[in-house]
Design a protein around this nucleic acid. Sequence first.
DNA 1: GATGAATGAGGGTTCATTCAT
DNA 2: GATGAATGAACCCTCATTCAT
Lengths: 212, 212, 212, 212
Amino acid sequence: MTETQKKFRRRAEARPDEVLNAALAVFVEKGYAAAKVDEVARRAGVSKGTVYLYFPSKEALIEGIVRRAVAPIALRAVPDLETFEGDPRLPITMLLTVLIQQLARPEASAVPRLVIREVMSFPFIANFYRNEVLGKVMPALIRLIERGVETGQLRPVDPELTVRSIIGPLLAHVALGELFGITPAKGLELERFLANHLDILFHGISAQPEEA
Amino acid sequence: MTETQKKFRRRAEARPDEVLNAALAVFVEKGYAAAKVDEVARRAGVSKGTVYLYFPSKEALIEGIVRRAVAPIALRAVPDLETFEGDPRLPITMLLTVLIQQLARPEASAVPRLVIREVMSFPFIANFYRNEVLGKVMPALIRLIERGVETGQLRPVDPELTVRSIIGPLLAHVALGELFGITPAKGLELERFLANHLDILFHGISAQPEEA
Amino acid sequence: MTETQKKFRRRAEARPDEVLNAALAVFVEKGYAAAKVDEVARRAGVSKGTVYLYFPSKEALIEGIVRRAVAPIALRAVPDLETFEGDPRLPITMLLTVLIQQLARPEASAVPRLVIREVMSFPFIANFYRNEVLGKVMPALIRLIERGVETGQLRPVDPELTVRSIIGPLLAHVALGELFGITPAKGLELERFLANHLDILFHGISAQPEEA
Amino acid sequence: MTETQKKFRRRAEARPDEVLNAALAVFVEKGYAAAKVDEVARRAGVSKGTVYLYFPSKEALIEGIVRRAVAPIALRAVPDLETFEGDPRLPITMLLTVLIQQLARPEASAVPRLVIREVMSFPFIANFYRNEVLGKVMPALIRLIERGVETGQLRPVDPELTVRSIIGPLLAHVALGELFGITPAKGLELERFLANHLDILFHGISAQPEEA
DNA sequence: GATGAATGAGGGTTCATTCAT
DNA sequence: GATGAATGAACCCTCATTCAT
């Protein structure tokens, strides 16, 4: 097999992935319904027929996108969250740090944005995300908080509900910026936001120091 | 003018509103692009032609919906937020209580949901919401926090960023429930969620008693 | 009956005529198919319903226009043409003079233009114009030429075909100006055109002086 | 390349032309506004979608028709008219002979008929025809007459206006026949008409023979 | 495998016509 | 008589999907 052949083979194998990348870009930009298969093909550098060679329908594209992203960065943190033994504030800090870094990268945040945008139209997405992503990250987080409460490091908060207090401000920050173009004035927003959020969060959930 | 005439006149005057109600329902259910004007008309109990009698295009429907909702419940709270003098935690509690009650009512939460869903496709919506809603509520909240920090009732948090800690958990709670069907197990969710959120938030932002 | 009442009555009686005037204007401007009944009503200063009060359909409007114009200026010339005894060049000059004056007035030329424009779409128009207008003017002209040939004032031309040489240049002049905006450079076009046309025409059809 | 492939390729390349042919037929028959794209497609033997594959809109069809006919038979005569040196009556005879032969063929006269019919609704047509057809044929004719006057072969007529006397009778003949179904009784109309027209025209514009 | 010409169902929009007032 | 809100059939155009090459 010559080099050329190998390159071609490699390309051929990468085709579905390239199509999904193009579809993701178009769907995020225009919304699924307004996106055209023609444009997906054009951006993927293939013909319209080729898209249908790999995916049976336009809907299969969005399903493929969501499935392929099954293991987002966040998921890799699950084992860490599950097995962590010490102060729960440390993994929470790490999780939020990773999340916010990812959300700052358009390629990485594209799938979550697509999911939020189209989840109402595709029950499959809600099920899949609930089962594969949220259903795994959230229980890990909940158990982390439970352990924190049990060990007395955290005040007796409701672990299930407290998850919302951990990720919610991040969600609000991203939504304000991405959807409405509302960003804080001073710059360095991400770091400053994260510091302020964690400051409030940890003051809010940490048990009082004994001497207080 | 007879009773009959009055009734008909009344109906005629209410038409645009009825059409917008129907459009809102369909848009929230299917998304703007997938919604059919035919179905909007059917739900409004009129013919397709009547929709175009009052609105020049399908896009004008979504614009009409957003404009009509200019004065959402939240906005009415702005004056209260602006003029409030005492402990800032009281108006924050009231605001979140009102918000969460509204979001629990599908009719009241439909517009915000539509806005979030379609804001990327209609720059007009982002501008309008930024100018008319967020641009008014957020500054009021920010000043409230600023005053709390100045009077020493709150710790020296960043007011602009802290807004995200106040509304974010609410956003996360609604998103998890509405988009992914993820609700806490025990029931009474809204009250319990709000209590947990305020508990953490106020522990997080209040100045320590002994320092105060 | 008061003056006011009389005036109103007069107006009411004039309604159909005003509607036809409006319809004529709109039809000439946009073409029948692209004209909207709404605009006809607006220009007539009545409601759309009123148009249908006097005319059963949009097509009835064009029929009404053509019928009302049955007695165009040209027709009034027919008796003169029929009974004229002397040199045929005189009535031809008069006919063309009247025609060209009328065609220069937009109100007067509107019906002929509408007829030419829509005659292919409405067989009724072709029949009606052939029977009521052309069928009367042309035979009169033909007989005039016949008499001229018989009396030796005109060369032995074919009367039926010579009609085309009389009115054709006028048609071409109007078409070039109205349809394509092509007008001769020097101004005074109508008079100069008519003079040139008659000069050529009469040199073309008159018997040679010495022969006569 | 096999025969089959060639045939298909040929067909594919001919598609736009076939669509324009069908559109021309339908437009001439019904008028642009009343013509349906569906019927154009049906007559072209393709689906509605295919029409839009080659032409972006219904209006583009009429533009395509007019552009394609840029080089009508008449235009090919322009060089001859321009360079002709001898008796101007010869090229005029030839031009009118060619024109009348073309106008007698429905396929050849379809575009001029469409142009006359729709020129008021599509300013583009007026501009295009003025620039590309009339703007070239008429000056050539005018110069021909000018030269005839200068050489003394023609009487001192106005060249610009005399053009109307040359083509006008032809226009009238066609209009009477095509639009109103009015044809001379005896048959052989075209030849007889042309003979009569030229007889009158040349008597009308020729300088008197010396002996007369 | 890859292409892109062709399809045709479906949706947004228009507008002649009707009819309750 | 007069109105104009309401209707709905019909039209232009789009685009997901197919299939001959």
